[in-house]
Design a protein around this nucleic acid. Structure first.
Length: 566
RNA sequence: UGGGGAAUAGUGUAACGGUAGCACUACGGACUCUGAAUCCGUCAGUCUAGGUUCAAAUCCUAGUUCCCCAGCCA
């Protein structure tokens, strides 16, 4: 996925710190030079752009070093996990272009092995059954500055522990009444090493193992061993697991099993959005958005429905880099990535979002002519189409200004502009309603400029898009903006929440945009650039045959908007 | 006040003792039948203070700031 290093001997592309670690490992023939990575989601929610960074990183590394990439679900908490999420996650990973081939794994497939390993640690005197309840355990754990206390159960014999653990497994004890803990060090300055829980009693239906277990292994007792079973060479995770690495290492060492190397990197933060699963869930359940795939969501499903392509997301992940410093990437980077992709690939069309009627007074009534327009001016191979032209048209309201400044290159009374692919027109008069709003423009056209070129060589500064009023297709268009109006929604004053920063105008629905007629047949899932407006995607969910709904994926850069703001 | 991490233009990311580079943003300009794209250019950076060295973003010392950890979540 990420581009392989170039051959150039001088200065190749920069290598991130993980690539450098792997370079070193390969020079040392560690793992015989093999690279195997994995993406280990918990199926308790939908994937977001932050996960995409991890997927691209892991799959990209495997690809770059000719290794293997696994998909493994970390499904050790049946209370939160569901098959629905498994399915959605697989779809998203596949869509992103990461290929796990036949290596789809579930931590739950390792439950028997994990149990056997737990028994082994008990026998070795390295694990014990503890009768403390959650509150008591918290008390015994100590604090950041004070060591924890060893409990009375810590000294139980392996025989007693074995017996108790088997009875835990057999369902003899109520939920939460006992745990199996690793016997490490209650005084460790790293709280994760203060005899962490390996197994807890939890009667919950597991999406894969059903009701066959009532004890479930914890993340710490599962993750490293799962990596080990799969012979993962480089176990790449986010920074918050750095404190867990000693535990990861402890289990592999104590068990004497293959020991993968855990490497941590900084998770992705994006401006103007939130990334935590909890907050995304809240947006959905409290109906601040339409669902997990709402086009304003930073989820993979949301981005896809917004019109992002997987190529753009991969390119984005490639560009943002990988490091250990916590950082927040500007949303503009994501927008840049999708613009770059769509600029090359999206066919052009004309669509008027906020229509203003234009009557060409010297154009014969009832006449229609079909003018040729390029589907992509920079790429003639994409062909041409025709658009109907007639006496009455719609143009964009923003393309007319009664008191037009000098730098305004569009229409105003007495000014001439080019209608894209059509004619030069000059505005001669305006019609207003009783409250003074301009409702119609009266114009004349120059028949000699058909197709958009003047034989006398005269230039016009402005070219605007248009549609024929009688032929235009009506369609719903949704204009999306940032979900939050501040760069960092997590930055809230005392007593506030991230929801306070929700952007009330994050979506604007336009019920009756006027589009060139061919767009009525636009296929769901296809991309267009409405010239001078932006990139639009035909919503795969809400579109019906002959009634497409367009989601604005991204605007075009708008120099004029910037100029006019000053 | 314990432990683990991290600090390089506005934002990201390279440089691994030897010219601080690249990208995004911003701002100019050229070009243009999309005020788009493209092209050219400008502004702008090594957290602080000491030290080692011919030479320090890089090594050492001290400090500052930020992030993570007290779930039977992952």
């Amino acid at each position: 996925m990420s581009t392989p290093p170039e051959k150039s001997e001088d200065k190749g592309p920069s290598r991130n710190f993980i690539q450098q670690i792997i370079d070193t490992d390969r020079v040392a023939s560690k793992n015989n030079g093999l690279v195997r990575t994995r993406f280990p989601p918990e199926p308790n929610g939908y994937l977001h752009i932050g996960h995409a960074k991890s997927i691209c990183l892991n799959a990209g590394l495997a690809h770059e070093f000719n290794g293997e990439f696994n998909l493994r679900f970390d499904d050790t908490n049946p209370a939160k996990e569901e098959q629905e999420y498994v399915d959605a996650i697989m779809e998203d990973v596949r869509w992103l272009g990461a290929d796990w081939e036949d290596r789809l794994y579930f931590a739950s497939d390792y439950f028997d092995q994990l149990h056997a390993w737990a028994v082994r640690l008990i026998e070795a005197g390295k694990a014990y059954v503890c009768d403390l309840n959650a509150d008591q355990m918290r008390e015994h754990r100590g604090t950041l500055t004070e060591p924890g206390k060893e409990c009375q159960y810590r000294m139980r014999s392996p025989e007693e522990n074995l017996d108790l653990f088997e009875r835990m497994k057999a369902g003899e004890f109520p939920d939460g009444s006992r745990t199996l803990r690793a016997k490490i060090d209650m005084a460790s300055p790293n709280l994760n090493l203060r005899d962490p829980v390996m197994y807890r009693i939890k009667r919950a239906h597991h999406h894969r193992t059903g009701d066959s277990w009532c004890i479930y292994p914890s993340y710490d007792f599962t993750h490293g061993q799962s990596d080990s079973i799969e012979k993962v060479t480089h176990s790449i995770c986010t920074l918050e697991f750095e404190n867990h690495r000693p535990l990861y290492d402890w289990f592999c060492e104590s068990l004497g099993i293959y020991h993968p190397q855990q490497i941590e990197f900084a998770r992705l933060n994006l401006s103007y959005t939130v990334m935590s699963k909890r907050k995304l869930l809240q947006l959905v359940t409290e109906k601040h958005v339409g669902g997990w795939d709402d086009p304003r969501m930073p989820t993979i499903g949301g981005l896809r429905r917004r019109g992002y392509t997987s190529a753009a997301i991969r390119s984005f992940c490639d560009r943002i880099g990988v490091a250990k410093a916590a950082s927040t990437i500007d949303m503009a980077w994501l927008e840049d990535a999708i613009r770059e992709d769509l600029n090359q690939h999206a066919p052009r069309a004309m669509g008027v979002l906020r229509p203003l009627k234009v009557v060409i007074e010297n154009y014969p009534e009832g006449e229609v002519e079909y003018l040729e327009a390029a589907n992509h001016p920079q790429n003639p191979e994409m062909g041409t189409r025709t658009v109907p032209f007639s006496r009455e048209l719609y143009i964009e309201q923003d393309d007319f200004k009664e008191d037009a400044p000098k730098k305004f290159f569009r229409l105003s009374v007495g000014r001439e502009v080019r209608l894209r692919y059509a004619y030069f027109i000059t505005c001669t008069d305006i019609v207003k309603d009783s409250s003074g709003n301009v409702t119609e423009l009266r114009c004349t056209y120059d028949p000699a400029t058909q197709g958009g070129n003047a034989p006398d060589g005269r230039k016009v500064k402005g070219t605007i898009h248009w549609v024929s009023a009688d032929h235009a297709a009506n369609a719903e268009v949704r204009l999306y903006d940032h979900l939050f109006r501040v760069e960092n929604p997590n930055d809230t004053p005392e007593g506030g929440t991230f929801l306070d920063h929700l952007n009330p105008n994050s979506v604007e629905q336009i019920a009756n945009a006027q589009l060139e007629p061919a767009l009525a047949a636009a296929q769901p899932g296809s991309h267009f650039q409405f010239e001078r407006n932006g990139y639009f995607f035909v919503d795969p969910v809400d579109s019906a045959t002959g009634k497409p709904v367009f989601n604005r994926t991204a605007t075009l850069r708008d120099t004029w908007a910037k100029l006019s703001k000053r």
